[in-house]
């Protein structure tokens, strides 16, 4: 089975930002969450995958093909949802379909109609009158209507209510049910990923912090909490995102390291907490993996 997406050693330099030697793989049939603080490089990564930007070095493969050489084929196979509407304000749902469908070899009118109905979107109303949730649903409907094998979503659920976010999760799980289709889901609402993501890639400051299964990530890190007196120098170097108050200290630490410091409280962090603590810039440890080890 060919991997849906492969990045290796991908770098891109901008004034003021450097995406450095990024590498991860999305195996076919799974959901990968792309997490990290704002400005970490998630959107840049997605633009590189879609050939909207060219990498300075490294290579990218979508279904085994290089976007630079097979742009058309890849774009037929990839459905994209951005965080804001990328259609004309004055369009109706019908206009959108008419404007877009001709570009695709395999536009599925029935599938589109079914989704529009499921999402309860009025076909003849101007989309400028739609709510944000409806915009997202329209984009999702178009992304799912041209037989795409990879769905790429860039922060689609920010600002959406819990019901809609839950609907998104359900649709994504349904999407991968046949084992042939895959999802790359970039978000900073980690709770959306916690249940349904199989793999996680965590980017921080343009560098890879972690890539691997969600389970592995959750098992490899824990929250450590203790009284001020218990914070030794040794311990401090191992803690990520250290937070010290009058009450005590807390931070993130690799599980294997935590075993050394026996009698301090260890807790299971949520994915959100892992992202928050690991994203903090102070502290002696920035924890980044070198060259994409897990």
């Amino acid at each position: 089975m060919i991997n849906a997406l492969e990045l290796a050693d991908v770098s891109k330099r901008f004034p003021g930002f450097y995406l450095e030697r990024l590498g991860f793989t999305v195996p076919q049939g799974y959901i990968m969450g792309l997490v990290g603080p704002n400005g970490a490089g998630k959107t840049t990564t997605i633009q590189l995958i879609l050939n909207m930007l060219k990498p300075d070095s490294g290579h990218i493969k979508v279904f085994g093909l290089d976007p630079r050489g097979h742009e058309m084929q890849i774009k037929e196979d990839v459905g994209v949802v951005f965080d804001s509407l990328m259609f004309v304000d004055g369009w109706t749902v019908d206009d959108t379909e008419k404007a877009i469908s001709r570009f695709y070899r395999h536009w599925n009118t029935k599938a589109f109609a079914g989704l529009i109905e499921q999402f309860e979107l009025p076909r003849k109303k101007r989309i400028s009158d739609f709510s944000r949730g409806m915009h997202m649903k329209l984009m999702l409907a178009t992304a799912l209507s041209h037989e795409a094998r990879l769905l790429v979503l860039d922060e689609p659920t920010s600002g959406l209510d819990a019901v809609t976010r839950d609907l998104f999760s359900e649709i994504l799980q349904d999407y991968i049910k046949d084992g042939e289709r895959s999802v790359l889901f970039s978000t900073h609402i980690s709770s959306d990923l916690e249940r349904i993501a199989d793999y996680i890639t965590f980017i921080k400051d343009g560098k890879l912090f972690y890539t691997g299964s969600l389970e592995n990530l959750m098992e490899n890190f824990c929250l450590i909490k203790g009284k001020p007196g218990q914070l030794t120098d040794d311990l401090e170097t191992e803690i990520l995102g250290l937070r010290v108050t009058n009450m005590g200290f807390e931070g993130l630490i690799k599980t294997e390291k935590a075993r050394k410091f026996g009698d301090i409280l260890i807790d299971q962090p949520s994915l959100d907490e892992i992202v928050v603590y690991a994203s903090k810039r102070e502290g002696k440890n920035d924890g980044c993996f070198k060259h994409g080890q897990a």
């Binding site: 879609l50 742009e71 774009k75 951005f82 509407l85 990328m86 304000d89 570009f103």
Partner: peptide, 15 residues
């Protein structure tokens, strides 16, 4: 420019 259509052009199979 107003509606951010460049992103749409980037996604569509359009050279």
């Amino acid at each position: 420019e107003k509606d951010g259509l460049r992103r749409l052009y980037g996604i569509l199979p359009l050279r």
